[in-house]
C-alpha cells in the first residue's frame, strides 16, 4: 500500500471519528445531513459485500467492518438517540435519496465491467458515493451557523477521495495497472463536487473567520 492510499484511508477514518466525537461530546448532530449518512450506509453495504467472500488483508477487513459499523452507528444516533435526534435539522435536510440512488443504480446496470452481482453492486457503490455528499452540501448552504467540527468533517471527507486519485495515478505507473475508468471518473467527480466547499473552507481558515457558504 502506498502513502497516498494510506493517507486517504486515514483521512476518511479521521473524518468519521470527528463526526462521532461531535455527536457524542456535544450531544448534537446539528448541521449533519441524515440523508448523506444513510447514503453512506447504502454505499458501504453494497461495496463491502465481498467482506465474507474474498480476503485481502486484515487491514482491509478491519477497515470495512469499521466503516460499516460507524456509518450505522451515526444513523442510529441521528434517528433514535433521544437527545441527539432532537438536534437534527429535519426541515432543512430536504434532499430526496431516491433521486440519487435510482439513477446510480440504473447507471451501474448500464455501465459496468462485468455483469455479476458483486460487480454491479460495487459499481453502484462507486457511483452513489460520488454524489452522496450532495444532501450534506445543500444543508450546509442553508445553515447560517456551521460549527468547526462539521466544517472539518466535510473537509476531511472530501480530501480522502482526492488522495485516492493520487493513489490511482501512483498505482497506474508502479503496478502495471490498466486504465480503470469507473473508479477514476467517479472519484474525480466526487472530489470535484467539493471544489467550492474546499475554497470557502480554506479561505475561512486563512482569514480566521467563521465558515459560511454562499446560498
Amino acid at each position: 500500500m502506498n502513502a497516498f492510499r494510506l493517507a486517504g484511508d486515514m483521512t476518511h477514518l479521521l473524518s468519521i471519528i470527528l463526526l462521532l466525537l461531535k455527536i457524542r461530546a456535544t450531544k448534537s448532530c446539528a448541521g449533519i445531513s441524515l440523508k448523506t449518512q444513510e447514503l453512506y450506509v447504502i454505499v458501504f453495504m453494497s461495496r463491502y459485500l465481498d467482506l465474507f467472500r474474498t480476503y485481502y488483508s486484515l487491514y482491509n477487513s478491519l477497515m470495512k467492518i469499521i466503516f460499516l459499523g460507524t456509518s450505522m452507528c451515526i444513523v442510529w444516533y441521528m434517528r433514535s438517540h433521544k437527545v441527539v435526534r432532537q438536534t437534527y435539522n429535519n426541515d432543512e435536510d430536504t434532499f430526496r435519496h431516491f433521486f440519487l440512488v435510482l439513477p446510480c443504480f440504473v447507471l451501474a446496470l448500464l455501465v459496468h465491467r462485468n455483469f455479476t452481482f458483486i460487480e454491479i453492486l460495487w459499481t453502484f457503490s462507486l457511483y452513489l458515493e460520488s454524489v452522496a455528499i450532495l444532501p450534506q452540501l445543500v444543508l450546509l448552504q442553508k445553515s447560517s451557523n456551521i460549527d468547526n467540527l462539521t466544517g472539518t468533517y466535510v473537509f476531511l471527507l472530501g480530501a480522502y477521495r482526492g488522495l485516492y486519485l493520487f493513489n490511482w495515478v501512483y498505482r497506474f505507473f508502479t503496478e502495471n495497472h490498466r486504465v480503470r475508468w469507473i473508479p477514476w471518473l467517479s472519484g474525480l467527480i466526487q472530489t470535484a463536487i467539493y471544489t467550492d466547499f474546499f475554497y470557502y473552507y480554506i479561505r475561512s481558515w486563512k482569514n480566521r473567520e467563521k465558515l459560511k457558504l454562499p446560498a
Binding site: R5, T54, N60, M63, R113, W168
Partner: peptide, 10 residues
C-alpha cells in the same frame, strides 16, 4: 485471469 481489480481498496 480474474484480477481483484481495485477491490482491494476501500
Amino acid at each position: 485471469n480474474v484480477e481483484p481489480e481495485l477491490h482491494d481498496e476501500l
